[in-house]
Simulated scan of single mutants.
Amino acid sequence: MTSEKTPTTDEFRPDVLRVLADGQVRPFRDVHRLVADLRGLDAETRAETIASGQPRYVNRIGWACSGLRYAGLLERPQRGYYRITEDGQSVNRRNLSIYSEEDMLEWPKWANYQAEIAERRQTTSPEPSGMHSAAVPSSGATSEASIEELMASSQRSYNAQTETILRQRLQESSPEFFEKAVIELLWAMGYGGAHGEKQHMGQSGDGGIDGIIRQDALGLSSIYIQAKRYANTNRVGDVEMRNFIGSLMAQGAKQGVFITTSTFLPKAVETAEQARHSTIILIDGLKLTRLMLDYEVAVQKAHEYTLFKIDEDFFDSEAV
């Protein structure tokens, strides 16, 4: 238990599996009510809230459902509804009282999910607002530097998780949806200019081009887009890259962007770099979702926090 009366997320996970063990599809509002009743949470505990005003127990049960889903122990047939899977049933039969994130590493889906988050956190790309990747002091000191580092680290962890979930959501979407999403991203990045146009192709007979962004009113400068909504294990290879280059040549195109939710095989990268008639930019799943956060496509800001420091100039005036 924590210093509050509300059980932890780790303690709630077995409860979530228990209330869904009958295999029924249930909305989250029923799940958190049933879990609270199973736990026998009193009125005082149910009244505890977090900063947003949401009941703390509801928030933690929500995180429990989310984690179980990404471990493959729950599935979500539709938004806000959950159902237990066979793997979830096997865990439920253990009659656990606690099930931690470390425990869930026994499931490959969760292990891969956590590995991707760790990889994203280690990325050396510049971070917004001058935040850096210095280690958070473990001494418990509350200096201005350590607090800023703690908040920066927390932001990186939270956003890395959001990026990872976003990539999974894109992989679960339809090919048409994904094609439109990447066009919206490039448009948000400013490639359409003030008088440009965006066009979704993505149909049979499109010549291997999924979208076009015309960067001026006359369409004299255009970016041709290929979008592949691939699973992690399906990497873009040399054949797909050569087909894209052929499509660009057929269009007389000078600029191409190849975007995938997975990654590129080394030979595909080499082929793109050696293209003679076009400049081809490759964007893999990690970079794609990082850009989507940077340009706020398919995401929205959840929270903003303000840190205050002493205005030394104000006090310097006292000596005048």
Rank of each mutant, 00 (worst) to 15 (best):
M1F: 02
S3Y: 08
E4L: 10
P7I: 03
P7T: 06
D10A: 13
D10V: 08
R13H: 03
D15P: 00
D15G: 05
V16E: 02
L20D: 05
V25I: 15
R26V: 06
R29P: 01
L34C: 03
A36R: 03
D37W: 04
R39D: 01
G40F: 03
L41Q: 02
R46G: 01
E48G: 00
T49E: 06
A51T: 12
G53R: 02
R56E: 11
I61G: 01
W63C: 00
S66T: 05
S66C: 01
L73H: 02
P77D: 04
R94I: 08
L96A: 09
P108D: 11
A111E: 13
N112R: 15
A115E: 15
A118T: 13
R121T: 10
R121L: 14
S125T: 14
P126Y: 08
P128E: 15
G130I: 12
S133P: 06
S133R: 15
P137T: 12
P137G: 13
P137W: 13
P137I: 10
P137R: 13
S139C: 10
E148P: 03
M151Y: 12
S153R: 14
S154L: 14
T162D: 08
I165R: 15
R167G: 06
Q171Y: 04
E172T: 09
F178R: 06
K180Y: 05
I183W: 06
E184T: 11
E184D: 15
W187T: 14
M189I: 06
G192W: 03
G196Q: 07
H200R: 09
H200N: 10
M201E: 08
G205N: 12
D206F: 01
I209P: 01
G219F: 06
S222Q: 08
I223K: 00
I223E: 00
I225Q: 01
A227N: 01
A231D: 08
A231G: 06
R235Q: 14
V236C: 09
E240T: 10
M241S: 03
N243M: 11
F244K: 03
Q251S: 10
Q251V: 05
K254Q: 13
G256K: 00
V257Q: 02
T260A: 07
T261H: 09
T263I: 10
A268S: 10
I283K: 09
I283Q: 09
T289G: 07
L293A: 07
T306A: 12
K309T: 11
D311Y: 03
F315L: 11
D316V: 10
S317Q: 15
S317Y: 08
E318L: 15
